[in-house]
Design a protein around this nucleic acid. Structure first.
Lengths: 194, 194, 194, 194
DNA sequence: CATGAATGAGGATTCATTCAT
DNA sequence: TATGAATGAATCCTCATTCAT
């Protein structure tokens, strides 16, 4: 009856259903794009008998979209973090970040497409740019350490995310292996001193 | 329903109306994103008194979308071509291409956003990748001339377009001047020998 | 396509359709009460093939409800005014007002029930209390002329409208003739000096 | 679905739950009007965690509505009766009835609004008019005793209840003290001989 | 008894499209 | 050609009700 109980806790069943719906929504958005993503389509993919069930578990389409976005971002964030926290050089971290991205595309082919397609329709505010901010910080650190040349870190972060997104959008028709290797090379050339 | 006369030709009036509608559609998509672009919204921006007129001039929403895409691509293509055909080196051509893109964003702030947003909803199949193909050819030529290092030209073309699109999507909140300069720098570093 | 053209004018056809829908809405509300009044029910009574047509002519349910209320109030206001402007005494005006109300119920059996049932759901703000205000003014004038005894004019106006509404709600099961005569008698006793 | 046990009796727990739900329903209807009164809203006000519980204790929305109506009527009836059975004159009884109504509004501000709003949606048939019948009987008795003038007792009863309901509907924005005094005065003038 | 998850009908509204004028 | 009225499918959402636990 409620999207969230008054205490903010969710029952196990509810968590499971929400996860099921979110998963179906991710697949739907990845396959059909936001414009064609309706509750009906999501319900079909989730095997639900009624779109009413989605409304039962989520306060509205916007909450679902935000939740999907948050979930994808969380999964992605954990995945990347596991592959980065080696300490070491900024350049190494950046390289790890890029390779993690490519690996993530392989393992979760629907997540990043959903992320990219939902970005404009999300009301989260914060998480949307968290990637960008963290990346810019890393770049700035690299500059401080003398590993990276001078450049506008925000612009460079934008570029790196743009390259990543470019691969995401074309992931279906592209050789991820080749793309990944070239991505690392290009970003290294773009950032390194000299 | 009309779309084209039985002989396949369009009258001057028809062409004018179609152009008016296409122009309004470009503005609408750029401002509202594809998901919120309806005939009603387009008609408002075009100063049309009926959405029926759009259906009259275009066989359907898909034809309109395709036409918009084709038109933007054509305008963009002419613009870029004028700034590139100086002959000269591949690197020079590539640089001219990039600068033309940035200049185009400044002069036609709605066109590339519309292009990017419509790409996934277009059924042209052909023109969608014409940019990519031409760019890949230029890169291959540069490799043949020894100006560019060895890389997968398709991947690199994808990257360059991704960088361009990254700027397009954030054009509203970004300093085009800075972005343009950095774009040239990054692409040069990404492609040049050594 | 629009509820109102940009110049605020309505075409003849549109006026006719709106009137048809408003009429059907009046009948529906009078018969079914607001809670059961849906676009579907209104469309049935209006002989429309689609509820979409109602949305086409009215910006929303609220606009329709407001328009219905305004229309009933206007018809009622004209009707009453025609029977009151004889000049003369305040008591005479009051009596004419009451008789006009009863006569109106006979001629327009759906209008006042709709008015009463819609009052709480209307966002008009002004017209809702115009009856009350005019009546209170008349009562005050009667007091000034010494025709009426001293009483709180707002409370008395409330009472008179309450008596009227009481008849309206039971109009179907009550003898209007008897009610009307008794209404005049009761109000006269309630207001007159002594 | 439960509604009543097979033997027709209700357990203490059942009675308590039903009373809790009925109380919340009264508040909900008084605050939100019938059209906006849903099981969800009632459950919120009752502190229930599920609308299912309402369906469990009442055979359907109609039974709940009828029960609410019956309950309000019973409470009101007892309250009024306590203040009337002094024997004495019909005029005195009538006056006591009116004052009891006003006092009831003060002590139970939600009950009469709920009663008025639910009247049209109730299927009891019986109790709905019990007020009216009793009041008409009192009026007839007063006529027999020569205390009241000649009038149609049903119409007069309708009028008196209409005045009462008029106050109820505006109770929030009106001075109950003033209204009460004027109500007694007006009804006395309306009914007394001469 | 109580819970909360689930259901499917029905709500208003928007949409692309059709058609008479 | 152009208009605007009309259509019906599809949208998200709310509702009372059912049911397994």
């Amino acid at each position: 009856m409620r999207a969230k109980s008054s205490s903010g806790e969710l029952t196990v069943t509810e968590q499971a259903r929400r996860a099921q719906i979110v998963g179906a929504a991710i697949r739907t958005v990845a396959e059909l794009d936001y414009a064609s993503t309706s509750f009906k389509r999501i319900a079909e993919r989730a095997g639900l008998s009624s779109t009413g069930l989605i409304s039962y578990h989520f306060a509205g389409k916007q909450e679902l979209v935000d939740e999907v976005f948050r979930e994808v971002l969380a999964v992605f964030g954990r995945f990347v973090l596991e592959r980065m926290n080696l300490g070491g050089s900024a350049a190494g971290e950046l390289r790890a970040f890029l390779l993690a991205n490519v690996e993530f595309m392989r393992l979760h082919p629907d997540h990043l497409p959903a992320l990219v397609r939902l970005r404009e329709h999300v009301t989260v505010g914060d998480g949307a740019d968290s990637d960008h901010v963290a990346l810019a910080a890393l770049l700035r650190e690299g500059q401080r350490l003398g590993e990276f040349r001078e450049f506008d870190v925000d612009v460079m972060a934008l570029f790196i995310m743009a390259l990543r997104n470019g691969i995401v959008v074309r992931a279906a028709v592209v050789d991820l292996e080749v793309c990944g290797a070239e991505l690392v090379e290009v970003v290294e050339r773009a950032t390194k001193e000299g």
